[in-house]
């Protein structure tokens, strides 16, 4: 992507609108139809259609041999996906909530992510690990985390985090076709679920044909000139809403960058924007320390800290478990109020 490119790239061939969940499952369905080696497994992905709607309709279309409900045995079925991938299949394994990675992390980071390297490139692991992330609905400390910084920190897996229906489908197709393990993290709040508060952007135009969104390319979600807001996932929508409002109020014209991928990280797009605006806000629904927000800042300061005309503002979850009570939870999440304060701080408004 060039930094000035703000559109989705493909010329729209349709005005059909889908929720992010539908766009995601359509991407899966098209790849499953095209490639018999693709199959999907996880908990409640069959008749239920995925707790967050990731696999709606897939069981009816492809049957239980290819859309497989597993026991609650994440180590076993993610390990199964790793093994099947090394034999040339293209499994998609769903970890229902990313918070459950604790019970199966070894298969993920010591096996899925390392086999290609350890084999000197002789063994590929072309699988996708899908997982739901994020809070905002009082699901408390064990069901609300994002944890993408942790996956991005551990070497050997690509990490993609769509925020829009268009990207959800395109990144899914790219992830399935990729010869590397790809962790595909979908925020519950962008899926457009009927039973959860949703941003209007959770439903949008999605082309009917299969298409790829390149892994490792950021997107300018909202062009602007006064400061750069680098973010990902649901926070893209919050940041865009705030930026639109502050621009209308004449406070600041903020550029919002949706990273879309953390691994590989599109450092060039971050750099290009911040070099232009001289002011940086990072909004991250993951924990503050040792994570994405620090990495984005380092991307700029490693190259040339003198482009920064104001101290950087980081809006992230402080280093505490996510609280249950609504007021406490919203105090730690990167909500509109905190994003606005950060933008005002960097532009000196």
């Amino acid at each position: 992507m060039t930094a000035t490119e703000t559109s989705q790239g493909a010329a729209p061939t349709t005005t059909r609108r889908l929720t992010t969940a539908k766009a995601m499952s359509e991407g899966i369905a098209q790849e499953m139809a095209a490639n018999p080696e693709v199959f999907y497994l996880g908990e409640d992905v069959g008749a239920y259609g995925g707790i967050f709607g990731s696999t709606g309709g897939l069981l009816d279309q492809f049957g239980p041999q290819r859309v497989i409900d597993t026991p609650i045995s994440e180590t076993a079925f993610i390990g199964l996906a790793v093994g099947a991938a090394t034999e040339g299949m293209r499994p998609i394994a769903e970890l229902m909530f990313v918070d459950f990675m604790g019970v199966c992390l070894d298969q993920i980071y010591n096996h899925m992510a390392k086999i290609h390297y350890e084999s000197g490139g002789n063994v590929k692991v072309p699988m996708v690990l899908t997982t739901a992330v994020g809070g905002g609905y009082s699901d408390a400390a064990q069901h609300s985390q994002c944890l993408w910084g942790l996956f991005a920190h551990l070497p050997g897996m690509k990490v993609v985090v769509p925020s829009t229906p268009y990207d959800a489908k395109g990144l899914m197709i790219s992830a399935i076709r990729d010869d590397n393990p790809v962790v595909y993290m979908f925020h519950k709040g962008v899926m457009g679920l009927p039973w959860m508060a949703k941003n209007p952007r959770a439903t949008d135009v999605v082309p009917e044909e299969a298409y790829e969104v390149p892994i490792g390319k950021a997107r300018i979600a909202r062009p602007g000139t006064d400061c750069t807001v680098v973010t990902i996932s649901l926070s893209v929508h919050h940041a865009t809403d705030v930026a639109d409002r502050l621009a209308a109020d004449g406070v600041a014209d903020a550029e919002v960058i949706d990273l879309r991928s953390l691994v590989p990280l599109d450092r060039e797009s971050i750099w290009e924007s911040v070099a232009r605006t001289g002011r940086l806000v990072v909004v991250d629904e993951d924990y503050l320390s040792f994570g994405m927000s620090g990495e984005v800042v380092a991307t700029v300061t490693d190259r040339d800290p003198s482009v920064l005309r104001a101290p950087v503002q980081r809006v992230a979850v402080p280093d505490v478990p996510i609280p249950y009570a609504r007021g406490l939870e919203h105090a730690v999440l990167p909500n509109a109020g905190r994003i606005e304060a950060a933008i005002r701080a960097v532009v000196g408004a």
Binding site: A140, A141, Q142, P323, Y324, A325, L328
Partner: peptide, 20 residues
């Protein structure tokens, strides 16, 4: 109010639970 219904810890009854 920090824990919620899946994370109840009660030293008085040595009760605990987990959402995992």
């Amino acid at each position: 109010g920090r824990g919620g219904h899946m994370h109840l810890f009660d030293p008085a009854t040595h009760f605990s639970c987990s959402g995992i």
